[in-house]
Design a protein around this nucleic acid. Structure first.
Lengths: 189, 189
DNA sequence: CTCATTTGAGACATCCATGTCTCAGCTGAG
DNA sequence: CTCAGCTGAGACATGGATGTCTCAAATGAG
């Protein structure tokens, strides 16, 4: 007998494969995605009704992961700089997923996804605003820009890691240090 | 009588329109690009043989602008931090073009474009390496990562400005300050 | 083993963007 | 005005990805 849960397992594996392919090549064919996922195009169609549905699911997965990362890092709690370091640690493994989100602007035509994103982005903006009010983050830079730039760098980490230009081991450090401390060396003379 | 130069004028205007559309929606139809450019699809096809040719031209334009920006900013000359500030000033007006480049990974299938990019990226990497050796940039962060992160942030500026989330007037400051100084406020207590 | 279920390979049909063509209208030089 | 050339609108063909189907092979429970 087959139980409905079986497909759920496949779904996750397929979604993961889809992220791998789509984050680099948003226009990749379904054949390619199916190949990387190790299933046939027919089975891919059995799991997801069509391309749009697949893309949407990947987007939803990304937003859910991002949101749960905000929870796990407890960004509303305690020192904001420390919270950001936690957030990076949690988020870096899903950097490719965020890279996909960053590159797929068309995805926000969907009202539900758009609303979800807006909600989460507001949360991150509020986080940076709190950090500014508490004196941790610079006030010359708009909180909205900090939020967006952080996400852009996260996506950049995702691309760099996938292409082998950045070691996964170093990615969290590279992101945290550059974003928080900047490229400029502090004069220690 | 018509002179060959006339089409060159149209080319630039069309390319500019194409950048506007494609940087946000890489899969935009030619009809949409033609509409934004204010010409018919037929004329668009008269200027560029096809979609691939158009995309390629936009990519080439981006690479050329990026390269000439490196020249204009004279990144091989003098203080590296000051050079980076100059580079940002020169590059920010073309941020949308860089956003297009950042999102169009498939573009580097073309050997010529790929070689051009590699050449320019090496130049930027050398710039950051020089800055590190001169004590201006932090040595904990790989020069390659600095180069890539800079470009990612530049693309982020392009997207943010196009969507009205960042004022063009503030974009150079936002980019320079975040990249060089980071988000963390220096303790002045 | 037996049978129900699932999967994969392939053959279609369909849709849509692209590429090509024609022709009428406009423009600008003479 | 006259005419050559450019442009836009639209029709049409084409190609390629997608969506749907069938059937044989593999799987796996009993």
């Amino acid at each position: 007998m087959s139980y409905p849960g079986l497909m759920a397992i496949d779904r996750d594996a397929v979604l993961k494969a889809a992220v791998t392919v789509l984050s680099r090549q948003p226009t990749a064919h379904l054949d390619e995605i199916a190949r990387v996922a190790g299933i046939s195009r027919a089975s891919l169609h059995r799991i997801f009704p069509g391309r749009d549905a697949l893309i949407r699911e990947v987007g939803l997965l990304g937003l859910r992961r991002y949101n749960s990362a905000l929870d796990t890092a407890a960004i509303e709690t305690g020192d904001t700089a420390a919270a950001l370091r936690r957030l990076v640690e949690v988020l870096v493994p899903d950097a490719a997923l965020c890279a996909f989100l960053a590159g797929e602007n068309q995805l926000f035509d969907d009202p539900e996804l758009c609303a979800l994103w807006e909600e989460q982005d507001a949360r991150v903006r509020a986080f940076f605003l709190r950090g500014q009010q508490e004196g941790a983050f610079r006030i010359e830079l708009p909180a909205g820009w900090l939020s967006e730039a952080f996400f852009d760098l996260l996506a950049g980490v995702g691309w760099a890691v996938q292409d082998g230009r950045l070691a996964p081991r170093d990615s969290a450090f590279a992101l945290t240090e550059l974003f928080l401390g900047g490229a400029l060396r502090r004069s220690t003379s």
